[in-house]
Design a protein around this nucleic acid. Structure first.
Lengths: 207, 207
DNA sequence: CGAACAGGTTACTCATGGGTATATTGATTG
DNA sequence: CAATCAATATACCCATGAGTAACCTGTTCG
């Protein structure tokens, strides 16, 4: 029990703001989990609200309409990919090393609640504008990945190939766990990511 | 113009049956294309019917309710995978050769209308029974794939690894084109399948 | 103190779209 | 020829679920 301070029941302004954003966040997480489990269409905002013991209009109060909820989940997912890019850009070593670093982070992102949502819930449920924005942002991630690949080709750590096709191939393989990986599985996301990246970068035939 | 026979306007029983199954097939194809383009939920059976110039009840007449339509599309998709398995089982060469053969056929299946549907439309829209059946049938495909891998490990053409994880990784990579490949693209499905399989089986680092 | 506001509720509206009842027409068959 | 069936249409029913209106309550602030 935390009893350092007298723990007054009267909250300060900051505590209020914090509380609000904690509630927002909790609703968002409840929503994304249900999206991932049941699919976007099969998820009722009413059920999301009920899972936290509140009523549907509360969601509208904190998050806006259903598409806005989804868009925010997607935005949070995309953020993870951006972190993966930044992280890999700063990594030392050859282009292949940086690519591997990126791929591991990318794979981990795909097993996070929000990352999974980006993959599982395709662009279909979004409005044309939403789809547009999503495509745009995905394109940027793809470009970054291709950058790592080309860097690797340039420094000789990766065999010359069609970088676009390679990027799609690698991304596809690492996207798929968003469909089958269950968080509490035998392998941790970390472990899984590492092993998959090894398989992809090393190849199958004995040397 | 075909005018070999007097071409009577009165159809025989077989012609009638053929005509009927041709209509069924046409409806199914129209449906699967729209499922793939717009997503299952966003597809109205009314629109599917309209795309062939008929009305909604005609679909119910030929195909039954919406889930039945989807289930049949999925069944046709799954058939392609089975053909891929049979084809690869009869292929000559090492385990790796057979695996590569299977992977190419699998990738091609994923770019066919019905195959794409299996991937794009996950199990979410199905009823519990439908989901159950789908999982079952997918499991069998996965088992076959693992068979090829283990065979390759046994005969030394594939380096020893976790065959389950490898199967997921490879399948994931080859599933992904179902999301981005557009039929009339620069690369044919055939070509694309070959290149991706090469990338996956050979690895990235120079030897 | 009273006005305004934040957080929440209950109880509605209403478009949508899956599915069906029923009618029509033309061919098939006893 | 009557009965039936296949193939289609029109016009409807009705559950569902997103979104909203109106209301309540406690807190904050001029």
């Amino acid at each position: 029990m935390e009893t350092d301070a007298p723990a007054s029941p009267f909250r300060t302004r900051e505590q209020k703001a914090e509380e609000r954003s904690a509630k927002r966040r909790a609703l968002l997480i409840a929503a994304v989990r249900m999206f991932n489990e049941r699919g976007y269409h099969a998820t009722l905002l009413e059920d999301v609200a009920a899972s936290l013991g509140v009523s549907k209009p509360t969601i509208y109060h904190y998050l806006g309409n259903k598409e806005r909820v989804l868009l925010e989940c997607i935005a949070l997912g995309i953020e993870q990919y951006h972190r993966a890019i930044d992280e890999a850009r700063e990594a030392p070593g050859s282009g292949l090393d940086r690519l591997r670093h990126f791929l591991r982070a990318y794979a981990r992102a795909n097993m996070d609640d929000f990352g999974r949502c980006v993959i599982r819930t395709g662009p279909e449920p979004l409005s044309p504008e939403g789809r547009q924005g999503l495509r745009e942002r995905k394109r940027r991630i793809d470009a970054a990945m291709r950058g790592f690949i080309e860097e690797g080709i340039a420094d000789g750590s990766i065999v010359p190939t069609d970088s676009k096709l390679l990027a799609f191939t690698l991304a596809g393989a690492l996207n798929w766990p968003a469909r089958w990986h269950v968080p509490g599985g035998e392998l941790s996301a970390e472990e899984l990511a590492s092993r998959m990246v090894d398989m992809l970068t090393i190849g199958l035939a004995p040397r």
